[in-house]
Deep mutational scan, measured.
Amino acid sequence: MTDQQAEARSYLSEEMIAEFKAAFDMFDADGGGDISVKELGTVMRMLGQTPTKEELDAIIEEVDEDGSGTIDFEEFLVMMVRQ
């Protein structure tokens, strides 16, 4: 866990972390443990947004600390705390 990830967790109660985990699992449609650009786009479109591929890439790049091209749960928490 990076310093950013530990800091993000410090702002959240266990209840909030559990709620974010449920949301993360909804995004992680294939159950792979991370959110891909495609999965992020699908959920955002379900919520009425129309992000471009470039916008989706930028969202993932902003929090993808390990350079995997996807968002894992710890990175997702950082993203949610920043919102």
Rank of each mutant, 00 (worst) to 15 (best):
D66A: 08
E14Y: 06
V78L: 13
L47K: 00
R45G: 14
A29S: 10
A8Y: 06
S36W: 05
Q83Y: 05
E65P: 07
G69L: 07
D66F: 11
I60S: 06
E39C: 11
D34I: 06
T50W: 06
Q4F: 05
G67C: 07
D30E: 11
T2N: 15
L12I: 06
E62R: 06
E15H: 08
F76Q: 00
K53M: 07
E65Q: 10
I59A: 05
D28K: 15
S13H: 10
G48K: 10
K38P: 05
G67D: 06
E74C: 04
E14K: 05
M1D: 12
Q49E: 15
G41R: 09
S68T: 12
L47D: 00
I35K: 00
E7L: 07
Y11R: 08
Q4G: 07
I71F: 09
D25E: 08
R82Q: 08
A18C: 11
D3Y: 11
A6V: 14
E7C: 09
V63R: 07
M44F: 06
E39L: 08
T52V: 04
S10R: 09
A8E: 09
D57A: 13
T2W: 05
I35S: 00
Q83C: 13
G31V: 03
T2H: 04
M79K: 04
M1C: 15
E55Y: 04
I59T: 02
G31K: 10
T52Q: 13
T2A: 14
P51N: 04
L56T: 10
S36A: 13
T42H: 15
I17V: 08
L12H: 14
F24W: 15
E75C: 09
T42I: 10
P51L: 12
R9Y: 05
T42E: 13
A22Q: 08
P51H: 09
T2P: 01
E7W: 12
F24A: 00
A8I: 11
A18G: 13
V78E: 12
I35M: 03
E65H: 10
V43N: 00
I59Y: 13
F27G: 07
I71S: 00
L47I: 13
M44T: 01
S10Y: 15
E54F: 14
T52P: 09
A6P: 14
D25N: 13
R45Q: 15
D64Q: 07
I59N: 05
L40Q: 00
M80A: 09
G69S: 10
D25L: 04
M46L: 11
L47Y: 03
K38M: 04
E14T: 09
I17R: 08
D72C: 13
S10V: 05
F27Q: 09
S68D: 11
G33V: 01
M16S: 11
I60M: 15
D25T: 07
E74K: 02
G67N: 10
V37Q: 03
I17W: 05
F27D: 00
D57I: 03
V43S: 01
E55I: 12
E7M: 07
S13C: 04
D34A: 06
S13R: 04
E55N: 07
K53H: 03
L56P: 01
V78N: 13
I35H: 04
T70I: 09
T70V: 12
D57C: 10
E7Y: 06
T50D: 12
T70L: 14
G69A: 06
G32R: 11
A22F: 08
F73G: 00
P51I: 14
I71E: 00
R82P: 05
R45H: 15
I35F: 02
Q5G: 10
A6C: 06
E62M: 07
Q4Y: 10
M44L: 12
M1N: 13
R45A: 14
K38Q: 10
A18Y: 15
T50L: 10
G41Q: 11
K53R: 12
D3S: 09
D30V: 12
E61H: 08
D64M: 15
F27N: 01
Q5S: 09
V43G: 00
K53L: 07
M46A: 09
D25W: 01
E74Y: 08
A58E: 09
V78F: 09
Q49Y: 11
L47G: 03
Q4H: 02
E15L: 11
G33E: 05
M46P: 00
D66V: 06
V37G: 04
T50Y: 14
E15R: 09
T52K: 08
V37W: 03
R45N: 02
F24H: 00
